[in-house]
Nucleic acid binder design. Structure first.
Lengths: 226, 226
DNA sequence: CAAGGCCGTGACGACTTTGTGACGAACAGG
DNA sequence: CCTGTTCGTCACAAAGTCGTCACGGCCTTG
């Protein structure tokens, strides 16, 4: 479950945000000033930071800059809370590097939407790695190459695409229809059982690395990394 | 089609809105005061609520706040109807958390646009909660995966869907008919006792996490988070 | 406290889903 | 034009899943 750091010096605002986030199943860490924020960000490495611009000790601008400078925290999405719409330009600009903003007063609902949007955006962009390794299995997308314990496995174009898409979405079940859409591209004339046949061929060629290919009965297939 | 709760104490206004919504294919539920509104919102879990600010029993502000505080209704978009433009700030502000507003008198056309806008926004930007944790029980929807104290539990497609729907509506009792509709999808040929059998299998597989599955005698089943 | 209804449980047969081997069409390369 | 590969479909068998039913305990209700 995603962990979120909420930084604001107004207890009411923190409480409101905290309540909403917890209701949505997030783990919440809070901080009331800039110094605390930096400390907690580094200590608990949250998945996202909700940061008020006007806070004591070290202000929001400075916190943002410092977090971006540290390699450990540079990648964490920051959602800025600003009182004045006029400050938006600076917040989103190069100077600060926040990823999104919400102006006060905000509706909790709006805030939640932004947070989920940021988390999703990060998820999807991070997943597009081109060379993937899972134990003995290596999938090199640009080279169009697959190896199992260092030995090259010859896959046909369709098999390769199927494996790639499953691996890129590892952990998530893909229905046969979804796979047809993505691997065979809009060709819904094709029978869903065709997917099964290709999975069989894939498994055959991958040998022991076939353990990564899970069948989820009644739903579809899933790639497991471990 | 989406279900919409309309709350206003003026019968004329309700009728007008209701007529327009029904013409557009929405399912409409109405309430004339705040107490009724809260009751119906919790009972029928609409996709959106059109809420007049000035209503008897419990006023609009209070209804809004209470709905936001309940995890079961916190996510429902609220469209406020206000008589005075001056109230807008409070309505949209931190204090209330409405998602949009329309000032009276409004044109039906304007109202419909706002409603459709809110519904679309939710559809496109708000992902359903995908990963839920309740103590030792974790339900990961996209992965189609359930774990109890870290150990994976193998569920069939039907069992998983049943658990997911109950968990997403935690705290609220679901009748067997409702569950048949949502899990088995329009297949009302099926015996209601079938739900019992699946609940049994779920409980068996979940082990000690089965404590989250409550039987409400004479009514149905309920997922409890704690 | 007795009757009736509701729900948990175990069993079972019908049905669905998936893995597998085989086959012919389409296709690319020589 | 020939040949080998790839691809989509099919049929079949095995395994898993589903819906129903009957029984019995327990709770509710009068």
């Amino acid at each position: 479950m995603a962990k979120i750091l909420v930084v604001d010096d107004e207890p009411d605002a923190v409480e409101l945000v905290e309540f909403n986030l917890k209701s949505a199943g997030f783990v919440v860490v809070t901080a009331a000033d800039g110094a605390q924020a930096l400390k907690k960000a580094r200590a608990s490495l949250p998945d996202l930071i909700v940061l008020d611009l006007m806070i004591p000790e070290v202000d929001g601008l400075e916190v943002c800059k410092l977090l971006r400078r540290d390699p450990n925290t540079a990648g964490i999405p920051i959602l800025m809370l600003t009182a004045k719409a006029a400050e938006i330009d600076r917040v989103l600009g190069l100077e600060l590097g926040a990823d999104d903003y919400v102006t006060k007063p905000f509706s909790p609902r709006e805030l939640m939407l932004r947070i989920k949007g940021l988390l999703r955006r990060r998820e999807t962009t991070e997943a597009k790695v081109e060379k993937m390794q899972f134990g003995e299995l290596v999938v090199d997308v640009p080279a169009h190459n697959v190896t199992v314990t260092g030995k090259r496995v010859e896959l046909t174009a369709t098999e390769f695409k199927l494996l790639t898409i499953l691996a890129q979405r590892r952990g998530r079940v893909q229905s046969r229809d979804q796979l047809l859409k993505d691997v065979w591209e809009y060709d819904n004339v094709i029978d869903t059982r065709t997917v099964d046949t290709h999975m069989r061929r894939l498994r055959e060629k991958l040998g022991k690395a076939a353990r990564h290919l899970d069948t989820v009965r009644g739903v579809g297939y899933r790639f497991v990394a471990s």
